[in-house]
Design a protein around this nucleic acid. Structure first.
Lengths: 327, 327
DNA sequence: GCCATCCACTTACGCGCTTCAGTGTGGTGT
DNA sequence: ACACCACACTGAAGCGCGTAAGTGGATGGC
């Protein structure tokens, strides 16, 4: 069933069409410094390229120049949201305008070790990796080993997302302890693919609980009816607060509490993690731990600065509690 | 400041280490059919590759075999959400396991013409593009022209996501009309990047409203306090139901209603779209329009089938109302 | 008038890989 | 004893490009 298999247009085609050699085509199209090329030739080549719809092969380019022009924008260590989306978008635009090929690696909630990122780096051999959410030293090392020249991350070197996962739970517990809660329930997600992350969070929570002298009970996010019963029981048992694995789980806690008729925050305080847009939409609005400082921070204006590695994108994303109605 | 620039490990290194030729290395590592290679050699090569940490260059591979192994997973035509995230995740996993390099192209709300997708296709020369949200014929043509061999889209040829977007709103309105609601409020998201989609939804809703003789008022998802007031006012004005752009917006509506003391579903029915896990976590639980026959449908199990183009990824996702507590 | 420059190019190599077309060796069939 | 063939490989071409090195011709200086 093979048909006209329209061959890819190469620099050789452009050369033929404009009556010069391939080298000249390359020099013109890349504005190679140190070459003197008259405007007339330049235009002829340019026009031929346009007319033929020539698109250089990044693969051949990568081989020849050992530099791909690919930039991986990694947001795998930071949960999605408007901030990340905005940063990704503006960065992508800027990169495309400069002739780079941006490739994004999204947050999936299941790439603890950054394997996807490393695989991508190994296979695609990007010139740069821009990690919006930070990178731990181990990952950074792996990326360097994979041959990535430029690694751009916020506050390079200091605590990576994987370490912060537990820390966020510590912040929750500390906050609750501070408000006088002594018996708190930790609700983890039911999805098996989040189990590993949940373990990290729980570890952090347990550490903080010990330090602050609060007793901690962990339960998974059951189906609403069941959870409502459980919450009612635990509350009757003396629990006065629940810390949720993240905001989405917290919504489930809020729902179950409402169903059980347990007043939030009066009878039970609830705190999440992530500060998703969702957190502002519940009733009561969700108190939560945010990983980023203020919205504007993430809008990347100076793409060149980012590429030069001079700008930390999310400087010091020190977690902080955003106090709303639920705790 | 150049240092030890650790050279990339190539197939030649593996060949040298295992005492065979580069050709043999290639045959072993790719399981090239039609070659007879004894288990012993196979193992020697494999081991050498492992020990050296050999990672083939997709760029060289692309040049030589005119097939990159890159698969673009495009969700630029379908708004983000847990469904898409899940599908993307499972597809990526499957692809990586099979030696492909998945590259995702996310929804940005600003790529109406699919330029990003086309650019990506042109530069990366993927073997396949998997469009989770469907593709219109023009785009498909452009991709083919860019040399993409396999283009996988749901129910190929028929309505792309952009058409279905409005249809979902029609289902919402039809359901509400059916339950006797005559005055309904449509709540759209506030994010500017969703404006275009919201317009599509609204158009569908308006069409259905006209057909079912219901009057429709559209408002954006304001900040909670404001929305609560507005909802109270609209309810006093005779509105008995609200249809939300999607489940996440619906959560905001539920929150505002609770704040305003408007009973759901007694005084005000609320219906969402997407059937996210979230929909089961609110109180009352959210009645919503599901795009898939049960959540599992979007989890792509058979990656091979997808790659072979034999599977529409979202097979006939006939929207249906999942009735829960809120409407 | 002659060599040095500069200009405007071209030639040719090699990046790391796949793959086609061999090549030598040992075993079978007759 | 010889042809034949499967086996287990190897050699080398070439994918599309960047780029170092070269080439021939027009100027310029002295």
């Amino acid at each position: 069933m093979a048909s006209q298999e329209s061959r890819r247009i190469t620099a050789a085609d452009v050369a033929r069409a404009s009556g010069v050699s391939r080298a000249t085509v390359s020099y013109v199209l890349n504005d190679t410094p140190g070459q003197t090329i008259p405007e007339s030739t330049r235009q002829r080549v340019q026009q031929a390229a346009d007319e033929l719809g020539y698109v250089p092969s990044i693969h051949a380019r990568a081989l020849a120049s050992r530099s791909t022009g690919i930039v991986v924008i990694d947001s795998s260590t930071i949960p999605p949201g408007a901030l990340v989306a905005g940063a990704t978008r503006s960065l992508s635009r800027g990169l495309v305008d400069r002739g780079y090929v941006p490739v994004v690696n999204q947050y999936t909630g299941a790439d603890e070790a950054g394997e996807v990122l490393v695989t991508l780096a190994q296979r695609l051999q990007p010139v740069a990796v821009v990690a919006l959410g930070g990178l731990d030293p181990a990952l950074t090392a792996l990326l360097e080993q994979a041959g990535v020249e430029r690694i751009v991350a916020p506050s390079p070197g200091d605590d990576p997302a994987s370490e912060r996962i537990g820390e966020l739970a510590e912040v929750q517990i500390a906050y609750l302890a501070d408000r006088g809660h002594r018996r708190v329930v930790y609700v983890t997600p039911a999805e098996p693919e989040l189990a590993a992350l949940a373990e990290l969070r729980l570890a952090g929570a347990r550490g903080a609980a010990a330090a602050h002298d609060v007793s901690l009970t962990a339960i998974p996010l059951h189906e609403q009816e069941h959870l409502a019963d459980e919450l009612a029981r635990l509350h009757a048992d003396g629990a006065t607060a629940v810390a949720a694995y993240n905001d989405e789980v917290a919504v489930g806690v809020l729902g179950a509490a409402a169903r059980a008729g347990v007043d939030v925050p009066g009878a039970l305080a609830v705190i999440g993690i992530d500060d998703l847009p969702l957190a502002r939409r519940t009733h009561p609005q969700l108190t939560t731990v945010s990983q980023s400082d203020g919205a504007a921070q993430l809008e990347i204006v100076d793409v060149d600065a980012v590429l030069a590695g001079r700008t930390a994108i999310l400087p010091h994303p020190r977690p902080r509690v955003v106090v709303r109605g639920s705790a």
